[in-house]
Every structure is written in C-alpha cells, then in structure tokens.
Nucleic acid binder design. Structure first.
Lengths: 344, 344
DNA sequence: GACAACCCTGCAAACGTTTGAAATTTTTTA
DNA sequence: TAAAAAATTTCAAACGTTTGCAGGGTTGTC
C-alpha cells in the first residue's frame, strides 16, 4: 500500500532479472517484444514510478537547482523566480526555493543544504545581512566545487561567478531627470534604508543627477523610509511642512510613493499640479491608481530568464573554465499622470 | 576540483574503512577520540559535504515536499508559499515549487515528477484546466501511495486528502451585506470567469445575499471580467451607462475594483458618494489608494501555515490511516473609504 | 552436422552512506 | 601471564537503478 513498487519487485514477480525489467521499461532494443509489453503493462498497472533518487546517485545528476531569495512574497522577487522557472522547468529542472528573510545565518544554512542535496547550480539574491557584513565565505564551497553560482540583484566580485543585476542608479537618474525636464525645481527624495544596495544606488542616482544639472544640494529634502507604505507617512508630512515645500518627490519604491500620495492628498495638495511623485518598481497597480503613478520598471522576469540562460551556458560549456558573465539590465521609466504638468 | 569529496576518499587517505569515517563524522561514541578529531579536521579542510542523495536512497526520506501552484507571481499565491515555507523550512524540509500556468498537462507532469523524486508530501492548488475538466486521475498515484496530499484553495472530494480553503462565498456575502447596510440599493457585480471556482463562489455569495435581503434580481447589474484591471474598463463603462445606474459595485477582486474606480472617476462620479466600490483580496495597496478600498482579505499566509500543519499531522500519525482534515478559513472584510457614506 | 550469427537475458559492479554484527586490538583483572 | 572485558575498527548488506560484458539459446548457412 505505502511502499513504492520497485524494479526488483517486478523482477521477482516475473522471475526475471532487474536488468531485464529496467531495459524493458526503457525500451531498450535488445528486449523481446512480448517481454517488454508484458512488463510495461504490469508496471503501469501497479503504478510503478522510477525512483529518481537512485538515478541521481548513479548519474551524479539531480536536475535540480537552488534559488535563495530574501523574500518571496513580493512582486519583483516572484517575477524573477517565475523567469527562472519559465526557462528551466521545461528542461526538466526542479527549483528548490529557499527564503532567508534577509538573515545571514539562514542563507548560510541553505547553501550547505543545497550543496548537500547536490543541486546543479545556485541562484542567489544575497540577504541584507550578508551584504552588510560582506560575509561571502559560505559561497566558497560552491566556488571550489565549480558549481554554477549566479548572483541576482546584488553582485559580488570576490570570485568568479555570474551575475545579473538591474541598474538602479540609472533608473533613479532617469526618473529624476524626467522630473527636472517637467520643470520641477525642488526635488525631494524618500530614501530607503542606508547600507542597502538598491536603496543606495537609487540615492546615488538622485544625487548625481541633481548635481549634473547644477542643483544645489539640500539635505532637508532627503528623508528616510524602510520601503513600507507606512514608513513614508511621517517623513512626507515633514517634507510638506518645510518653509519651502518640495515640488516633486522621487520615492525609493512604489509603496512609499503610495504613502506619499496619500499624505499629499490629505493635506489638500494636488498631484501633479502642486507636487509630482515618482516611484520605483512599476508595480501592477501603478497604472490604475489616481493619479496613475510614474515609476521605474524593473524587468524582474527578464532578469530571471537571463540568469537561467547564463546558468545553461555554464552547464553546457565543454571547457570547465568558469564562465563569469555579468549582465546589467536597464530599467525603464514609465511616465504617467503623477508627474504631469505643473500648476502655476 | 570539481568532484565532491566522499567518505570513501577520506577513508582511502587515512587507510581506514568508510564505516569509521562515517561514525567519526557523526560523533558516534564507539570511535577513538583522536581518530574522530583527525577525521573531522580533515573533512572540514577538504570541504566534505555529506551526500544527501545517497542518504535519501538509504532512508527513503527525502525531506522535500512538492508545491504545485497555477502561478507564483501574485500576492496571494506567494503568501501561501511563504506560509508553508515558514513552518516547514525550520524543520529541514525543502520546497519544490512547480508552476502550472493553469495547464492540466503541466500539472500532471509535475505530479509524476514529484512522485518520482520521492517527495514526502504534495500541496496543490489545482489548475483551472484541471478544475474545469474534473481530471483528478493524476492524483490517484499519490493517493495509492498514501502520500500526504493537501489541496489548497480548491477542494476535491474524490478521495481522502486534506484541504485548506478560504470561504469565498462567505467573503462575498459579508461584503455585499456591508454594502446593503450602508444603504445601497442597486448593487452591481463584476463577475470573474464562469466555471472558475473562486469566481463562482463569490458570485453565489453576491446572489444569495441579495436574495436573503429581499432584493429583486437584476441581470443587467452583473457583468463579466477576467480578473485583470483592463477587463473591468468596458463592463463598468456599460454599467454606468444604464438608465438606472448602480450605486455600488462589488468586484470579484481588487484588480478589477481598481479598474472600476478609474472608470468611475473618469466619468466625473464620486466614490463613495455616488458609487461605492468593494474589492476582494485586500492587496497591499488597497489601504493607500484614494479613496482607500474596502476589500475582503484572504489570509494566504495563514492558509499556508495551516496546510503545513495538516501535513505534519499526516507525517507524525502513528497509524497509517489517512487523516483527511478539511479546513475552511474565514476571510475578513476590511472596511475602508470606498464604501463610506452615500451622497444624497 | 558444425559453426557462425543473432537475439535475448543475467551477472555484477557502481553511485555514497549507514549500521548491526563480527573481528580485531587494547586494557583490565585475577 | 592468561583469560576476560572493554574499546575500537572492519565487514557486508542495503537503498533502486543502470549498463558493459558474458552466457545461453535459437536460427541460418554451407
């Protein structure tokens, strides 16, 4: 009832050897027509399922790959996974998903576990703790075993590995440039957590764009959030209370942009006439809220696809030399209502 | 360089038997102190990683479970996965994620594959095609092997299996009741695709709630969408053009609610004064758009947690009798601005 | 009728690990 | 110093499958 049927079971039943059964089920030519048919029929009847575990042991191929991400419950991350999946599942690979919750220790544990499970490659978007601490030792085993390792979203130059990232700096730069082009003079920034790669890059894009366009630096226009909607409320409130109010806010992501829009409306100000708002991520609803939100789109699915492509290159490389390809994808600015014409 | 170090390799190096190495690494008491230390040090030095595949074969335990979902790139689905993960990863389980894109054939293939990989349990949110066709044969093997099988979101009574679902009917009922309580008289419904379980249940909740409150049935107030934002545009346009306009719209999900709100605003009508809008899903932004959206929250993460809990019950049951627990979680109505006071 | 050619099946080893029982070595005891 | 006891190590089998090679049987050819 409970134990799966094995080839040996079938062999015993038919008083033949396991080899014959194996060959019959795999349509090996050197097997008698009748024998094959009988065995195949019986196997089907009893619901025989070839044991992949034993095969994996024999062939040293598991057809499974590990994906380590800080979180899964989030549009961008799951788009990446979907992209990887779209390429790799049709080729027979299984995905082992590991969620680190931004914790270094968990990440380390998952790497060990994946290695132990003999996955054929690892995709990793390193956790915040890992990134902050610069602890990359746990990837050394992966490297030593010359197992395909592909960094997603955050790059590490320590050893040869692939990486696919999105140019957050450029995305921010373009967004701010757009705000400037629409005539905004006092552009504020809802910054993300300091030390966090994506947040820092966007901040840098904001700063350098203003600089290159000859704006004076004004620290009062830069406030901090933690990416969440609520964390934008107080900072934006503060911005609007400034003696000389900003006329545009570039937000580190859409969540905070939505928070900002709420505060602005609650104060009776108009978007975009009084204040323009731009976000980052182009989440699915940004086109449908009112006003629709200008936002920088990150091609998450494409990132996953490219990462999978690089993995396959490693896999198929005849030479064992580590292919270390670094790909940087451009984000795309989606211009919508929230950065429309200024009021006078 | 590439080949992983095995216990045999270490044994050869130390001129001892594999058994000794295995015991030393596992801190077996019957191993000499020095021997153990030496072996452990060496193993660490060469980066030995126990091969879980061989262990799985030996113990017939893979510590991995399969999760089959129609899509992953979506708040609700990924919340479920996150919930399952939160319970099972700490216990050492790996998650094999399979995305069916609502296709029966893929789902069937994944079931075979998971069985072949000897996962210890399968969580499945069946694809639309499976549901429509009533094709559940591919789960028979799972059942015959008395492998824990847990249906998520869509229940199947064909054979003993666990299930955790959310009471969509009740959610819709409560939402519509709320609209009635706020004084609305002509309540329209943006219906989802016919034949789709969740959509149908919500429709039923809508219908029966109106009936129980003595409303006349008005087919012109029921229009169809495919869950997507865009698909709400034309139908809502049509609703607003009716000789006797609805004063409330109950939408099958938040996406369509957002689409509806856009059309309503574009027509110069006010929400909620002229028309109230309620959605379903309580997506993260619903509290922050303007007006904030009343919506029925589905506890996805909790669903995942409960499903995992049921799985563990199967696992730990001393008797092999199939525990078949069916859990129905209540959704929660989140009342917000979009269903506030009517205008006169 | 002998020998080759062919068809089909079985043997045995391999993948990496664990584990009960047996064997060996070392230590203790009388 | 010999026997008993304890400590440590090895043997062998097992998990399920595949596969090169050898073996056995049948048919065909001269």
């Amino acid at each position: 009832m409970s134990k799966p049927v094995t080839i040996k079971d079938i062999a015993r039943k038919f008083k033949c050897s396991p080899s014959t059964v194996s060959r019959a089920l795999n349509n090996h030519p050197a097997i008698n027509e009748d024998t094959r048919r009988n065995l195949q029929e019986y196997a089907k009847k009893v619901g025989y399922q070839r044991n992949q575990v034993s095969l994996s042991l024999l062939n040293k191929k598991t057809a499974s790959i590990g994906v380590i991400v800080p979180t899964i419950n989030n549009y961008y991350e799951s788009a990446i996974i979907e992209g990887i999946d779209a390429v790799l599942q049709p080729l027979g690979y299984s995905l082992h998903i590991c969620v680190t919750n931004e914790q270094y220790l968990l990440e380390q544990g998952y790497v060990e576990k994946l290695l132990s499970n003999r996955v054929e490659g690892i995709f990793v978007s390193v956790s915040q703790e890992t990134y902050d601490g610069g602890h990359y030792e746990h990837f050394e085993n992966v490297y030593n075993r010359s197992l395909p390792l592909i960094f997603i979203d955050r790059e590490y130059e320590g050893f040869a590995a692939g990486s696919v990232t999105i140019d957050d700096y450029l995305g921010a730069f373009v967004a701010v440039e757009h705000l400037i082009a629409t005539g905004r003079k006092r552009i504020a920034h809802l910054r993300g957590p300091q030390g966090m790669s994506v947040a820092d890059q966007r901040y840098r894009g904001y700063i350098e764009c203003l600089q290159q366009h000859g704006f004076d630096r004004d620290e009062t226009l830069i406030v901090h959030t933690d990416f969440k909607v609520e964390s934008a409320i107080a900072p934006v409130d503060q911005l609007l209370g400034l003696p000389s109010r900003p006329d545009a806010i570039f937000c580190v992501n859409d969540q905070t942009a939505i928070g900002a829009m709420k505060v602005i409306r609650d104060k009776g100000l108009r978007i975009p006439e009084d204040i323009a708002v731009a976000g980052f991520d182009d989440s699915p609803i940004s086109g449908y809220i009112s006003p629709s939100l200008t936002s920088v789109a990150r091609p998450g699915r494409q990132l996953g696809i490219e990462a999978a492509r690089i993995f396959l290159q490693y896999q198929n490389a005849t030479e064992k030399e580590a292919i270390s390809e670094h790909l940087i994808l451009p984000p795309q600015l989606m211009i919508r209502g929230s950065t429309g014409k200024r009021g006078k």
